[in-house]
Design a protein around this nucleic acid. Structure first.
Lengths: 277, 277
DNA sequence: CGTTAGGTTGACGACGATCAATGACGGTGG
DNA sequence: CCACCGTCATTGATCGTCGTCAACCTAACG
């Protein structure tokens, strides 16, 4: 863990009492043990002038920190707040009356929630690791977006990306077999986590999920997820245990997932897999 | 309809030769037989000043008209255009290599496509009826959104709504049974169509879909859709034949769909169902 | 050690996919 | 006017994937 780098980049390191939790969950712990100075995630802050940033601060965003396993909001809450996620892992989900649960998206830094116009939240959010969020009031954000149009533009792009991801999930759940779904989700998480952290070309990552999470994200039973993972493991494609994902053969994983490697994955990954193959 | 103004503003009025098609398909025909004067759908145009509208026109949007069954773009096209849908019915879908198809969303006037940042389209769009679109270049729209921040705000709301709808589809496909999915989709389409047209409280509508569309939207086989519809028909809940949907018992339909009537449906609907029950 | 949470494996059944045949239209051409 | 055709809807029979239920295992922790 590089405290120096963290401070250079404008982070305050604090002695967090939830270190135990972080260690247990094995989440993206490194990024979690500080409170943000900058109120915007990198995706949104990119390209803003100092003047713009002053406008952002003028909107008086507050900060909210949650430990693992807590809820930021629930389905049915009226949404007068808008949240930007700065750090951690979380998931958004809907539940039906009889308890069936569908995980809609895994939220990583740079995600935005709470925008759906007027009305109530149509889903809930629960954290998987310690998380920090920036909180705007709806009106505050609206004024800010008027004042700093670039930011609105960024937000549009961000939301368009979220829609695209939701679409991928939809065809995954609607039209793929259990094994394909699992493989596809693993690839997605791998890609997304690598887009954020400029981590090495390591073929492993730490996933703060449990199998029921995967199941609910894919519209499967957790036993089916377990069986699919066992199969992938037996075939030497991936191993997933205790929140650690090792990709042994990314080429075959991508093939199982029904994904074009070239378009989705950075090149280093494909080189890596040549070794494995 | 003001032809003079239309021409001043750079729109071409054309005698549409696809009237027969429109009649056959039974789509929202009334709205389809001309090219819009206004370049923005109502949702986006709402609240714009004349000055704003001049900025919109300065972005030089063009218009595109498609007949039923044509494609606006395909998965894999690079997306340098942004489309706003003005009229008609269409659907967005993804296909897997082996031909499996997932319909992601039914597009109605007010939908926006082509925004997903840089890169290529991740899905295709095909029309169900004759459709008209406004086309912006990506850069043109970006500049416009900077110049007219309200518009960016509207777009954010619009996209947030699209995400919410995608989420609904996801839990529908991931966690509901065949019958529930069908019922849910019918309710969604009913609600959406009523939000647009200020149609009477009629309990019927014209759906320019075929059963395979419903199937691909719900992750089902078309035979299963047929069986589900038969069951709903036998129980006197809905009838759907030849593009005409009649809702006989909206309360039971909503119950099957796992939807709260109060939140989703306008009140008149519930009154209607009291008669039926 | 006992407890607990999460993962693993097996047996069985159900929901829905698939395959196939038939029916209902609407359009077309004789 | 009727025969023919293509498209789409319908219905039945069979099969397979995945959900459900249950038992067992493993590891972490007190």
């Amino acid at each position: 863990m590089d405290h120096g780098r963290a401070q250079r980049e404008g982070w305050i390191m604090i002695a967090v009492s939830s270190l135990k939790v972080i260690a247990n969950r094995g989440g993206s712990a490194i990024a979690n043990c500080g409170v943000a100075i900058r109120p915007l995630p990198a995706v949104l802050a990119h390209g803003l002038t100092p003047q713009d940033m002053r406008s952002v601060m003028a909107a008086r965003p507050s900060s909210r920190t949650l430990e693992a396993g807590q809820s930021l909001y629930f389905q049915g809450d009226d949404c007068e707040k808008v949240y930007l996620m700065l750090d951690g892992w979380a998931f958004r989900y809907q539940t039906l009356e009889d308890g069936r649960r569908q995980i809609l998206d895994f939220a990583l830094p740079g995600s935005a929630f709470g925008l759906p116009g007027t009305g109530v939240m149509t889903h809930s959010l629960e954290t998987l690791t310690a998380c920090t969020f920036t909180v705007f009031t709806r009106t505050g954000l609206c004024e800010l977006l008027q004042r700093v149009p670039v930011l609105a533009l960024r937000l549009v792009e961000l939301l368009a990306g979220a829609e695209a991801r939701a679409f991928e999930h939809l065809t995954n759940v609607g039209r793929r077999t259990a094994r394909e779904r699992v493989a596809n989700l693993l690839v997605e998480l791998l890609v997304r986590s690598r887009q954020m952290v400029r981590a090495a070309r390591r073929s492993h990552m730490t996933l703060p999920l449990m199998q029921p999470h995967i199941a609910d994200a894919l519209g499967l039973a957790s036993e089916t997820v377990c069986r699919s993972l066992s199969a992938l493991r037996k075939e030497g494609i991936v191993t997933l245990r205790a929140h650690r994902l090792d990709v042994l053969d990314i080429v075959r994983l991508a093939r199982q997932a029904g994904v074009e490697l070239d378009t989705t994955l950075p090149v280093e990954f494909q080189v890596k897999s040549d070794r494995a193959a």
